[in-house]
Design a protein around this nucleic acid. Structure first.
Length: 590
RNA sequence: GGUUGCAUAGCUCAGCUGGAUAGAGCAACUGCCUUCUAAGCAGUAGGUCUUUGGUUCGAAUCCAAAUGCGACCA
C-alpha cells in the first residue's frame, strides 16, 4: 500500500547513486507537533550521502515532491524529513484499501497452530486468574485466525490427581449426598466447597497430631485424611469401580459448571484433552531418550536429563519406582498433539510461574531431535493480584469468575440506566446490552495490558466505563451506527469522487484506519492482543474528535455527506472487527 | 543461594525493530448538550522514564551492575 520506501530508495539511487534496500527504509508516523504524515530519519544515511543531514533530507524531499504526485509537500527539521501526502492519496487509500472486503484479514497461509488455554483443575471453580487466561487464549487464537492461520483451540483438563481425591473424599464423608440439584449450587462451586472442607478438616487433624507431639512434617504425612486421599488415588489408578463412578459423577458436575462459565465468557474449544487419558503418555519418550543417549539412568534406576550445560539443572523424567512425573506426560502430550494435528506452532497459554517448566520441556523435545519443537511457544502471562497480594483460595481471597461476571453485568445495568437512554428498550434487549457492556468492560480491562505484566485488580474500585475502556469503544461504535442508520447509508454509496480536500480530522482518521493491517500483524507476531486493544482505543478517540468537529448529516453538499458517512461506516466496521478479536461484541445502540 | 520477569505522572497503563519537546485514561480543576448518542469533546495541572556506568551523532528503548517487587529451581 505504501509506495514511499520504494520511492525513497529510488531517490537515493538517482541523487547519490547509492543502493539502499526498501526494507532498510523505515518510516515513522510524524509527531503531532510537526506537519506531515510520515517521517524519514536521515541520520543513518548521511555517511553514504556525504552531505549534512539537512541537505540530504532536503534533496530527497525535493525529489519526491517532483516525481510523485502523491507527495504534496515536505519539510526538514534537523535530520528529519517530514513528508506530507496529498489528500487524494488518502482518499484513494480509503476507497481502495480500507473499503475492500479483505481489509483486516490475511488470506490463509496454510499453517496450523494449536492454542492451548484455560486448562483448569476440576476441584474448584474458575477465578479471576483463569479469566485472564481464558480471554488471553481466546484472543490470541482469534488474532492468529485473522492473520491466516488455521487454529485449533485446545483445553487440557486436569481431571485427576490427589487434589481431585480430596474433594471426592470430603464429599463422601461430609456431603450427605448433596448434589447441585439438591443444593442449588453450581456444580463446580459445589465440588470446590468440599475441597475447602477437606482442607479445614485436614488442618484440624494436623493440629491434633502436633498437640500429641508430632512435628509439622510428620503430622502432615500421618493425618488420616491425607492417607485416605492417597489410598483413593491408588484405587482410582487401579480402576476401582466405586471410585471411578464417584469421580465421573463429580467431574460431571464440574463440567456443567465450567461450560456455563465458558459460555458467559464467550470462549470455546475445538479439542479437549483430559489428563485422565494422557497421564500415562510419555513413557515411550523416556525409552526413546534413553536409547538416543539423551537421558541417563542413575543407580537407583531413576531417569534424568542433564541440562546443566544449558544453564538449567538435572531434571528427573522417571522416578526409580517407574512412575512418571509431571513433565513426562507433557512430553507425551506434546507428541500426541503433533501426531494428531501436525501443527506448525503450538502455543501454551500458561501463567509465568511455569516459565521454568516450559523452558525445560521445550529444551528436552529439542534435544530429542523433534523438529517441531521449534514451533512450541509458552505464552506466559503475569498473575492477577489483589491489593492485599496474591489470590489464595484457601484464605478465601479469590475473586470468583461467576461472581465477577454477575457484578459486571449489575454495574453495567446501573450505569446505563442512570443515563436514561435505554428506557424504551425491551427487557430482553436491555439484558443483552448490559451483558455486552459488562463483559466489554471486563475483557478490555484484562486485555489492554501486555500479557507478561502482572495485573492489579481492586474489587473495591469497580472497573471503569469511561476513558480507555471497552464501553468507550462500544459507545463509539453505537454512535456511528446511529448516524449511519439514520441516513439509510449503504456500502455502495460512493458518490464523492469529486472531493479533493480533506479536513484534518478526516485525514487523521483515514491514516489510523490504514494502519490496521500492520497492527494485526505486529500483534500476532508478539502474541499480544493488547496491541489490538490500544489500537481500537486510538481509532475510537480519533473518530470522536472528528465527530465533534464536523457535522455529518447536516452538511448540505451531498458528496461531503456521503464521504463522511462512508468514512464513519468503515470506522465502525474496523472497530467491530478489532473488538471481535478480543472477544468483545459491540452494540448497534446503547 | 541460582535462574528469570517487571520497574514510565498520585493511580492504571501506552510508547513498534534506538530518533524531534516521553503519551493516554482515572482522580483534580475550566469550558462545551434548543444542533447527527455528553459512556463524548476541548483545555489546565501533574515526569530525575528506580539508580549508576557503558555503546552511539542520538537511549525510556540496547549492554552491564546495583536497588526494589514477583515467580520459579534447590
Amino acid at each position: 500500500m505504501n509506495f514511499l520506501p520504494a520511492a525513497i530508495s529510488q531517490a537515493f539511487k538517482a541523487l547519490f547513486d547509492i543502493e539502499i534496500a526498501t526494507e532498510q527504509i523505515i518510516l515513522e508516523q510524524t509527531k503531532k507537533e510537526f506537519e506531515g504524515h510520515f517521517t524519514l530519519v536521515v541520520f543513518p544515511f548521511v555517511r553514504q550521502t556525504k552531505k549534512s543531514p539537512e541537505q540530504t533530507a532536503a534533496v530527497i524531499g525535493e525529489y519526491l515532491k517532483n516525481n510523485y504526485p502523491e507527495v504534496a509537500d515536505f519539510n526538514v527539521i534537523k535530520g528529519f524529513l517530514n513528508i506530507v501526502l496529498a489528500d487524494a492519496f488518502w482518499l484513494n487509500v480509503l476507497q481502495n484499501d480500507i473499503a475492500s472486503s479483505s481489509f483486516g484479514s490475511v488470506s490463509p497461509n496454510g499453517k496450523k497452530v494449536m492454542v492451548e488455554y484455560s486448562s483448569p483443575n476440576t476441584n474448584k471453580p474458575l477465578h479471576l486468574g483463569h479469566v485472564r487466561n481464558n480471554l488471553l487464549g481466546y484472543a490470541v487464537a482469534e488474532l492468529l485466525k485473522v492473520n491466516g492461520y488455521e487454529v485449533t483451540k485446545a483445553n487440557l483438563v486436569n481431571d485427576r490427581g490427589i487434589h481431585i481425591c480430596k474433594s471426592m473424599l470430603a464429599w463422601q464423608k461430609f456431603g450427605a449426598g448433596e448434589t447441585p440439584q439438591s443444593s442449588g449450587l453450581k456444580g463446580d462451586h459445589l465440588v470446590g466447597k468440599y475441597y475447602v472442607i477437606f482442607d479445614k478438616e485436614y488442618k484440624k487433624e494436623i493440629d491434633a497430631l502436633k498437640d500429641a507431639g508430632k512435628t509439622e512434617d510428620e503430622a502432615k504425612k500421618e493425618a488420616p485424611l491425607m492417607k485416605e486421599a492417597q489410598a483413593m488415588l491408588l484405587k482410582w489408578e487401579e480402576g476401582d469401580e466405586a471410585v471411578i463412578s464417584l469421580w465421573k459423577t463429580m467431574n460431571g458436575w464440574v463440567y456443567e459448571g465450567f461450560d456455563s462459565t465458558y459460555r458467559k465468557l464467550g470462549v470455546d474449544f475445538d479439542k479437549y484433552y483430559y489428563e485422565s487419558d494422557t497421564y500415562l503418555l510419555g513413557k515411550d519418550i523416556v525409552e526413546e531418550g534413553l536409547a538416543k543417549g539423551v537421558f541417563f539412568q542413575k543407580e537407583d534406576g531413576s531417569v534424568w536429563i542433564d541440562l546443566t550445560n544449558d544453564g538449567l539443572d538435572e531434571k528427573l523424567v522417571r522416578r526409580s519406582d517407574g512412575t512418571s512425573v509431571y513433565i513426562t506426560q507433557d512430553l507425551g502430550t506434546a507428541q500426541l498433539k503433533y501426531d494428531e494435528f501436525g501443527v506448525d506452532k503450538s502455543i501454551y497459554v500458561v501463567g509465568n510461574e511455569q516459565d521454568y517448566h516450559f523452558k525445560v520441556l521445550f529444551l528436552i523435545l529439542s534435544k530429542l531431535g523433534k523438529t517441531w519443537a521449534d514451533g512450541l511457544y509458552h505464552l506466559s502471562y503475569g498473575m492477577v493480584d489483589l491489593p492485599s497480594g496474591k489470590m489464595k483460595s484457601r484464605e478465601g481471597t479469590v475473586v470468583d469468575a461467576d461472581d465477577l461476571i454477575r457484578e459486571m453485568e449489575d454495574t453495567a445495568r446501573e450505569k446505563t440506566e442512570a443515563l436514561g437512554k435505554v428506557d424504551h428498550f425491551s427487557e430482553e434487549e436491555k439484558a443483552n446490552l448490559f451483558y455486552m457492556i459488562g463483559m466489554g468492560a471486563l475483557k478490555y480491562f484484562l486485555l489492554k495490558v501486555e500479557p507478561k505484566k502482572r495485573l492489579l485488580f481492586d474489587p473495591k474500585e469497580s472497573i471503569d466505563f469511561q476513558g480507555n475502556t471497552g464501553p468507550f469503544i462500544q459507545y463509539t461504535h453505537a454512535r456511528i451506527r446511529s448516524v449511519v442508520n439514520k441516513a439509510n447509508f449503504n456500502e455502495a454509496i460512493t458518490g464523492f469522487q469529486d472531493i479533493n480536500t480533506l479536513k484534518e480530522t478526516e485525514s487523521e482518521l483515514i491514516q489510523i484506519l490504514s494502519r490496521y493491517p500492520q497492527v494485526l500483524s505486529v500483534a500476532a507476531r508478539d502474541y499480544n492482543p493488547a496491541a489490538i486493544a490500544n489500537y481500537a482505543y486510538e481509532l475510537a478517540k480519533s473518530y470522536n474528535k472528528f465527530y465533534q468537529t464536523e457535522s455529518i448529516l447536516k452538511v448540505e453538499e451531498e458528496n461531503i455527506k456521503n464521504f463522511r458517512l462512508f468514512l464513519s461506516y468503515h470506522t465502525a466496521l474496523t472497530l467491530k472487527k478489532a473488538m471481535r478479536i478480543l472477544g468483545i461484541d459491540v452494540p448497534e445502540r446503547m
